[in-house]
Design a protein around this nucleic acid. Structure first.
Length: 406
RNA sequence: GGAGGGGUGGGUGAGUGGUUAAUACCAACAGACUGUAAAUCUGUCGCCUGGAAAGGCUACGUAGGUUCGAAUCCUACCCCCUCCA
């Protein structure tokens, strides 16, 4: 029984374990382990891609282990070694603190706060001198750094690599030494950095940490790993209907991995779902709805999940109007006129949707009009000037609405 | 320090004096189709004014200059890459 649970703990939602046998014996020893998880406070929002690892952390906590959360206030300044702009605006101390707070608020939605210690890199890098830097860097060679795929690819492609970027893995590795990490958690893309941690710990006479590397969750575009910069992410802090809608928009092929990586459903249920997806008789939509409910429940609650589902069914599937809409006062419009003898206002619809913020510019509004993407009270709009009444509902595209008020 | 190459719209990447708000592809958006999504087809894709025709403004690393006219030529500066030392 215990064996089986351990199996699921180390297998489901895990891409790679280094070194598995050592990790198993650590876990079996009954010792409380120090689990390292770092984050970059320049990007404070947690999305489902991060959740994969955080869930794993929380599972370990339930077994009595302790999380050491590292606020990467120094590495954040160097910048994650990817992307082409080398210079990066330095964050002010306040920004870092604010970001860290935002991050932790979301972090503790998943991870148990009671069993977590928060450490800031500046606690040890604050008075790290040049002699320390020299000592640290002398332990590694450029060839070792270039062994990392990110770097070697960029190097071969003739793209810039800042010298400080080579420092990034070393700082991260040093964190492991300071906190005496037993196990480091991270995405599989962190493998290199985490391995450097192992190496440095060994050099410094510590027992090297074990690594638990999570697979990368594919984003809503169905092609790339979920990330903020690609805008294919689902944030845990987003409102229920957003999360629900975004989950429904993932390609069908992703349903399985989302169930596996970001929900708590049992292994048994997981197998069932897998089977249903494999058979032709089940419409994937229903399973995806279930998935969306599970996920919304996790970050909000089941009530919110139900409402989000109703909203989705109504607005997206039945192309109906949602219950509560933002309101916009037509008296703000410059083009407002009253025809003779009528108390119904006439306005320029392109101005209306631009000014109310449904579209980003007047030009875009005109485009939408000419493409037949604007509806008022269920009628497609073809004319620029339209007559409104109070309570008219203006719809742009699939799901942008505004309700007119005086 | 020397020699050479390069910086273009969200991304990749054409364009070497006017026909270029800038080819193409990707992404994105809208419409059709669809009981989710995908796929497919059609269209759009800097900002402002205008019903439209059209006009104006801003934009090709930064700052100046030449020219009737510049992403394209000149000067300076900033940044990146390669090779040599």
């Amino acid at each position: 029984m215990a064996k089986k649970r351990l199996g699921s703990l180390l297998k489901r939602g895990v891409a790679e374990t280094i070194v598995e046998s050592e990790l198993v014996s650590l876990l079996e020893s009954g010792k409380s382990l120090r689990l390292k998880q770092g984050f970059d406070p320049s990007r404070p929002d947690i999305h489902l891609g991060h959740v994969v690892g955080l869930k794993k952390l929380s599972q370990f906590q339930k077994l009595g282990h302790e999380v050491i959360l590292i606020v990467g206030d120094w590495t954040a300044q160097i910048g994650d070694p990817s992307g082409q702009s080398v210079t990066r605006s330095m964050l002010s101390a306040e920004e870092v603190r604010a970001n860290a707070e935002t991050y932790m608020k979301q972090f503790f939605k998943i991870v148990d706060k009671e069993k977590t210690q928060v450490k800031w890199q500046s606690e040890w890098f604050g008075d790290f001198g040049l002699d320390d830097v020299v000592k640290l860097t002398s332990k590694f060679t450029v060839a070792q750094m270039l062994a990392r795929e990110d770097f070697s690819k960029r190097y071969e492609a003739g793209r810039p690599i800042a010298v400080t970027e080579l420092l990034y893995p070393l700082l991260q590795a040093y964190d492991s030494v300071v906190i005496e990490s037993d196990v480091e958690f991270g995405g599989i893309d962190q493998k290199f950095n985490c391995l450097v941690g192992r190496e440095l710990q060994e050099i410094m006479g510590q027992k090297p940490q074990q690594l638990l590397l999570m697979p990368l969750l594919v984003g809503t575009d169905g092609a790339n790993k979920m990330s903020k910069s690609l805008d294919n992410y689902i944030g845990v802090d987003e409102p229920p209907w957003e999360i629900y809608g975004k989950v429904m928009s993932i390609p069908d092929e992703l349903i399985i991995s989302y169930f596996e990586l970001v929900t708590d459903i049992s292994d048994k249920e997981f197998e069932e779902i897998k089977q249903q997806l494999g058979s032709e008789s089940t419409n994937p939509m229903f399973l995806k709805k279930r998935l969306a409910r599970e996920i919304v429940t996790q970050f909000h609650n089941s009530q919110a999940a139900r409402e989000a589902e109703e909203h989705f069914t109504k607005v997206v599937q039945h192309k109906d109007v949602p219950d509560d809409l933002p309101e916009f006062s037509f008296s703000l419009l410059r083009s407002l006129r009253f025809q003779d003898g009528s108390d119904l206002p006439t306005v320029d619809v392109t101005e209306l949707i631009a000014v109310s913020g449904l579209v980003s510019s007047r030009g875009e509004a005109k485009r939408f009009l000419s493409q037949g993407a604007i509806e008022i009270d269920g009628e497609k709009v073809t004319e620029t000037y339209i007559t409104l009444r109070e309570g008219s509902i203006v719809k742009v595209g699939k799901r942008r609405f505004v309700k007119m008020v005086k």
